[in-house]
Nucleic acid binder design. Sequence first.
DNA 1: GCAAAAGTGTTATCGCTACACCCATGT
DNA 2: ACATGGGTGTAGCGATAACACTTTTGC
Lengths: 249, 249
Amino acid sequence: MAMSLKQKPVFTGSNTCEIRPMEVYKDHGKVLVAVDCIIFGFDSKALKLLLFKRKVAPLKGHWSLIGAFINNELSLHKAAEKILFETTGLNNIFLEELQTYSKVDRDPGARVISVAFYSLIRLNELDLESVEKYDAHWFDFDQIPPLILDHGQMVQDAILKLRTKAIYNPVVFELLPHEFTIPQLQLIYECIHQKKLDNRNFRKKILAFNFLVKSDKKDKSGSKKGAFLYKFDKEKFKLFVAKGHRFEL
Amino acid sequence: MAMSLKQKPVFTGSNTCEIRPMEVYKDHGKVLVAVDCIIFGFDSKALKLLLFKRKVAPLKGHWSLIGAFINNELSLHKAAEKILFETTGLNNIFLEELQTYSKVDRDPGARVISVAFYSLIRLNELDLESVEKYDAHWFDFDQIPPLILDHGQMVQDAILKLRTKAIYNPVVFELLPHEFTIPQLQLIYECIHQKKLDNRNFRKKILAFNFLVKSDKKDKSGSKKGAFLYKFDKEKFKLFVAKGHRFEL
DNA sequence: GCAAAAGTGTTATCGCTACACCCATGT
DNA sequence: ACATGGGTGTAGCGATAACACTTTTGC
């Protein structure tokens, strides 16, 4: 064996590399693995989180993240994609692994290791039928109800991750419609960083990056005057990065 | 059931929350879970990676990360800590989850999901006996040999993570002795970012943060003149962050 | 006509970059 | 005495932050 540890039998078996028939594997850490999804959205006023109400006992009526056990047919990422598709009707959305949750007693029913993923979706593209079928509801960040197990912790971690990620990555565009206004964009950043920004400086800075493309259409939903619509140009952003620049906001 | 999906049996069971006796859980994604550790060090010249040579068939003689299957007694983080302690003799070291690796066929022997952790250690504190016992060797970043399974990918991902993390987090101090010189510190950043830095500007910037504490001792290992030793003051750093400042280098 | 949000420029300050020489010491 | 790496200051430039008024339009 590559590893012959002296202590508990935990690691006595082998390291991961052991390539052997199933008999060798079977004594080791066989556990259940689940995927849980933290789903973020933005409704032009506030950042929201999609939560699900359990319809059956036990814990009927409690709020939780959506999730599922995984089997042998899909990678974790694919499994998360599938869950998201089924609950939101959306494909090709921003989806990234957050981290694992593996406290031994986190699920009283069994040893379950859960891998949390967080995703950013465009509320305007959401399939309402799918959402209703799962008895899901959107919650403001500051009004998140108690969640089962360690889902509350997952949500806190995901929010923190989103905050820090948004500083150096233009992920917020995943939360906005493909066409959006500068004031909308600014509002997202204000929600995420929880402070007011100067609108003149914000405009200047974001437009100086040169990856926003102005259209000649206006969105009048936010004001009487109406605001011009812009698109985020991914290619221009990649070029920007390729030139050695760093995005930061 | 909270989820009643129509497709494959993958998710038909339940979401993670299901709290039930083992019978309910047993049909679902039972897989093996392993932990693999990417161990970084710095030898005052270059960034290094600790790799392990398999002593037994199959794949005898091949290089791999150190890892182990997990059982029901430890969280993944604790499991990784244990592996690190056994192979390096070190406790309380920087250890952070990288990500999961879960491609269905990544390990031909069984369905194994691996959770990679990366750690930063101080080479001067390393227990050489432990390391030798495991037939481990340090490799330069640009001389990493082929690794088994997807360990090569893990290493690449870890290096990238370390690079991006080091820009906004003072993690490099985890790689240096508790007392170090400014030139040593600069060298680490040069290794990580792979470019030369101006020593006057570097000094100015890092000292301006005000969380390095100068001692009156000199380290003469690097030059005849000798360079003053500094300490990283974690408390001062926390204060710096608490005041709303951002570290960036 | 007024309320409500969109849009626009300038100035002062700060931080970053670029750059070259003297210092201390071991050999 | 010389080779080696350690340590220091300044000036110009570019980026950021602070700040207030005009425009458009639905009601």
